[in-house]
Design a protein around this nucleic acid. Structure first.
Length: 911
RNA sequence: GGGCGAUUGGCUCAGUCGGUUAGAGCGCGCGGUUCACAUCCGCGAGGUCGCUGGUUCGAAUCCAGCAUCGCCCACCA
């Protein structure tokens, strides 16, 4: 097989839209995404690297958060792939019960239909039609951003495989006593007409009303309510009065001590209920006496259970008053509330009403006010599961990045409640529980249900399946192993479980990460992933959450079409750190696009700079070590430094650091100095052709390395550019499966020497600019070059001539000979121990120096630093206690500064 | 009420296992048709690193307290 450059000239302009799609197709055709794909170059014996991604909801379009997730996960997977590890990143979609039904219901409403009018079967048909239309959109968006997902393993959480896993896992939990069915107070959303988990209830700060209501104490003698003896209670929901079954006070509350044990009459329902003492009552709030509605309030429910109170349900599924035997039956909760308040006032039992700031629980999906209700539902006992999950994080088996979230994790996991998994919806996995007319429940992993009732043996035909479905997060929690074939013992499951990194936003740590951990450990006997990497949220430029209603969303596809997927990826990753939110602005996108453009042009330059002695389709060569000058060695050394820095950042999940390092290295080092210095070498006809060839191969080598390093962040442009440079013998055809660079040796001494010369060039440019020299003018420059820099300076002199526009450039052994020869008319430049004079006026009148202001400033600064260095060195505490290297550094620094100060004073004519 | 995070030049952000002179992009000022790039090049201005105190030879970095903003958790009706 031939390994050659394509030789095709790059288009002049960087236009990502012209090649990104085509490159993705090439990756697909080469079959390089799957760990066992035909184009994989992975070492089959290496430890696989597996990314667990949150499958996006099938209903929505991708937003920037998805784009960030894809960018980060793709970065990790590409890096691991280039390291030669088999990599698995399994794509999928989540069926999102509530979200999907919410969307479809609204659509149906537009057609004058409802869930009920269609019926379960036709409704689900509509749902499948709906999601089949959206799924391609969702998957297409991930392709656009360049995600190298293994499409051969695509999974949907409503697929048959997941359905089996759901039934099997739940049956096991039931048999193990970890799943149980009971009547309990659940969060009921009247809009969605389903229960929701605690996590899906959003506490919302609102100003409501606090009503103080008087209940009449029943006279034990007459059995009638006393007209005068009353107890006042405070409530924000007067309609729940109808469900009151007690009044509670704090046991230590002197005001009410005598009342404990008494009976009060609840208005309207005329129910007689006890006054009892309970620690949960806060004597300082309201009147210090609280009405207890066990069937409609979480706190009251607990109180009710402690005291064995009756639980009276007074609201139906749509939050209408029901079954109270009062005229309020059938009224909506808020209408009933208004009537009840009015009627209380009429009776003279309304003591007061005042505005009250409080937290109201609203449904995450529909925003309706959630109503606690008693329902018979399935729960999962989380205690033992959470304990195992905590053991995993405490032992370090699974670690969380950044670490501060471990604390959040701990506190949540240690105070976790049992998980209500029943949802009164249709779109989702049906709970595999069957009930017989005698009330026995049988849970079966079989789709058709059990053969007969476990308890009484009634045949399945007489059993009825639970109408409810599972909370979406139940199947999501099975994701890391259900997608690999569980409950079957498959090769994939053995090879790719547990996963390496689970990457997601910190906002779903409890929804998803916690559930995967609990279920994964339970069913697989090991954690589902070794590392949890949490990214921050993408906010708008003002720091607000992006939302459709605010109209501040940035569409990733639009960003891609204007700036390219590479730019969007770079923009999202650059300048971010784990777990921290970021504000996204167009400027970030522009910066990223400019960087891609820079890289594009650098590669174009390299391609065009090939010496004519190298054939166009030449095989890749390493530069001949014998022909390398300081320029070439500097480029190689700095490139090696970048490889090490990037490796270090990647090892610490510092992805924002990776982009910063590469941006600086490619732009400020490789382009600004590497290419500029190399240009001079390549154009130098006095050099042997072999030397110029070595220069060019050095540029190719460095460019190759930078393209590899940048590929995980900007896969498209790097792949496109890599195709234009000669490849090594052992390189594959595509960069995506090429090898990650090995760190090469550095040459710190040479880096310092070249660095000094770079500083001199900067100094000369600065002096010229300050003195308003015509930018294009070439001026004679005399430089004093100390012996230790002589060789390097000699080699770089032609470059200094060009970059500092110095002509002629003359060197002198000492500052004394320099000034002797150059006189004192010119602009003085002091850069470390290099000193130069730029001749501005060949025959000038001896007036004030044109550069005295600049030199004075430099002197003042140098003196300030020198004084600081000296005072530090004069401090015995410093010299005795600081590490030797730090003290030595300060000494060196002092010597250098002293020399600089002396030179500057000399130039300024001071002693 | 508990917890977490942020606070660095006009803006957006890096930088903390303490150590030379705190960085970048954008913006700003001056100047540029240098044959890769005006999506560019060169030069420059601009920061007592939120406040107070402590630890230390040395603090943007560690500790304590405070302030402002944001987020998470929590059964004050």
């Amino acid at each position: 097989m031939t390994r050659t450059t394509s030789g095709a000239a790059l288009p002049k302009s960087y236009r990502p839209a012209d090649f990104e799609g085509e490159i993705y197709e090439r990756w697909l055709a080469a079959d390089v995404f799957a760990p066992d794909g035909g184009g994989s170059t992975a070492d089959p014996d290496a430890t696989p690297f597996v990314i667990i991604q949150p499958p996006p909801n099938i209903t929505g379009a991708l937003h920037l958060g998805h784009a960030l997730t894809s960018a980060l996960e793709d970065l990790m997977i590409r890096h691991a792939r280039m390291e030669g590890r088999p990599t698995l990143w399994l794509p999928g979609l989540d069926h999102a019960s509530i979200a999907a039904q919410y969307v479809l219901d609204r659509r149906l409403a537009g057609e004058g239909e409802t869930r009920e009018s269609l019926g379960r079967e036709r409704y689900l048909e509509r749902m499948w039609a709906f999601i089949n239309a959206t799924r391609e959109v969702m998957l297409g968006q991930q392709r656009r951003i360049g995600a190298s997902l293994d499409w051969s393993r695509l999974r949907f959480t409503m697929g048959d495989q997941t359905a089996r896993a759901v039934r099997e896992s739940f049956s096991r939990l039931y048999r193990e006593g970890l799943a149980y069915r009971t009547e309990a107070l659940v969060n009921w959303c009247p809009g969605c007409r389903t229960s929701v988990s605690d996590l899906e209830v959003i506490p919302t700060a609102e100003t409501g009303t606090l009503w103080v209501v008087r209940y009449h104490v029943v006279d034990p003698a007459t059995g009638a309510p006393s007209p005068t003896e009353t107890v006042a209670v405070a409530t924000t929901r007067p309609e729940t009065i109808l469900g009151d079954t007690a009044v509670a006070v704090h046991p230590d509350d002197e005001r009410y001590r005598a009342l404990v044990g008494a009976t009060v009459r609840i208005p309207f329902v005329e129910r007689e209920v006890p006054v009892l003492a309970d620690d949960a009552v806060d004597p300082a709030f309201g009147t210090g006496a609280v009405k207890i509605t066990p069937a409609h309030d979480h706190t009251d429910y607990e109180t009710g259970r402690r005291h064995g109170l009756p639980m009276v349900t007074v609201l139906d599924d749509e939050a209408r008053v029901s079954g109270t035997g009062t005229p309020y039956d059938g009224l909506d909760r808020y209408e009933a509330r208004a009537r009840i308040v009015a009627d209380l006032e009429a009776r003279g039992d309304l003591v007061e009403s005042r505005p009250h700031d409080m937290l109201i629980g609203r449904c995450q999906r529909s925003n309706d006010v959630v109503e606690p209700r008693l329902k018979t539902q399935w729960f999962i006992r989380t205690g033992p599961l959470a304990e195992a999950a905590l053991t995993a994080t405490r032992s370090g088996r699974t670690r969380i990045v950044p670490r501060r979230f471990e604390k959040v994790w701990e506190s949540w996991m240690t105070s976790i409640h049992d998980w209500n998994v029943s949802r009164q919806l249709w779109w989702g996995h049906r709970i595999p529980a069957w009930y017989c007319p005698d009330g026995h429940a049988t849970v079966s992993p079989e789709e058709a249900g059990p053969a007969a009732c476990e308890a009484c043996g009634r045949p399945v035909a007489e059993l009825t399946q639970d109408p409810d479905i599972f909370d979406t997060w139940y199947s999501s929690g099975l994701w890391p192993f259900a997608t690999l074939g569980w409950p079957d013992d498959t090769p994939d499951l053995r090879r790719y479980y547990p996963g390496s990194v689970m990457e997601t936003g910190y906002d779903i740590i409890f929804f998803w990460v916690a559930r995967m951990m609990m279920l994964g450990i339970h069913f697989m006997g090991d954690v589902p992933f070794e590392t949890v990497y949490l990214h921050g949220l993408v906010k708008d430029p003002f720091g607000a959450r992006m939302s459709k209603t605010k109209g501040n969303v940035v569409d990733p596809l639009e960003a891609i079409s204007t700036s390219g997927a590479d730019s969007l990826r770079f923009a999202l990753i650059n300048g971010t750190s784990p777990g921290n939110d970021q504000k996204f602005r167009d400027e970030k996108l522009h910066e990223a696009r400019n960087f891609a453009n820079k890289l594009w042009n650098a590669a174009r330059f390299v391609a065009g700079a090939r010496p004519s002695t190298i054939p166009e389709a030449a095989a890749r060569q390493s530069p001949d070590p014998a022909r390398l000058g300081p320029t070439e060695r500097w480029i190689a050394s700095r490139t090696a430094a970048t490889v090490r820095a990037v490796d270090r950042a990647l090892a610490e999940f510092g992805f924002g650091e990776v982009t910063r390092i590469l941006y600086d290295a490619i732009w400020s080092e490789y382009c600004d100095w590497g290419l500029e210095l190399a240009k001079v070498r390549l154009a130098d006809e006095t050099l042997e052709p072999e030397v110029r060839e070595a220069t060019w191969w050095t540029l190719v080598e460095a460019l190759d390395t930078y393209l590899r390093l940048l590929h995980p962040v900007m896969p498209f442009v790097t792949e496109a550019l890599w195709a234009t440079i000669p490849h090594r013998e052992d390189d594959p055809d595509l960069l995506i499966v090429a090898r990650w660079p090995q760190p090469a040796g550095r040459d710190p001494g040479l880096e310092l020497e070249v660095g000094a010369i770079v500083e001199l060039v900067r100094g000369i440019r600065n002096a010229r600019a300050e003195a308003r020299v015509e930018p294009a003018a070439r001026l004679p420059v005399d430089v004093a070059v100390p012996a230790r820099l002589a060789a390097t300076f000699g080699a770089l002199a032609p470059a200094v001539e060009r970059l500092a526009r110095a002509r002629p450039l003359r060197t002198h052994p000492t500052a004394a000979t320099l000034h002797d020869r150059a006189g004192s008319d010119g602009l003085a430049v002091i850069a470390g121990d290099l000193e130069a004079v730029v001749a501005v006026a060949p025959s000038g009148e001896r007036t004030a120096r044109p550069d005295s202001a600049r030199l004075e400033k430099e002197l003042a600064e140098a003196e300030r630093f020198l004084a600081a260095a000296r005072s530090r060195l004069a401090d015995e505490a410093f010299t005795s206690k600081a590490p030797r290297a730090v003290v030595e550094g300060a000494r060196t620094r002092e010597v250098e500064l002293a020399a600089t100060v002396a030179r500057l004073r000399d130039r300024l004519g001071r002693a």
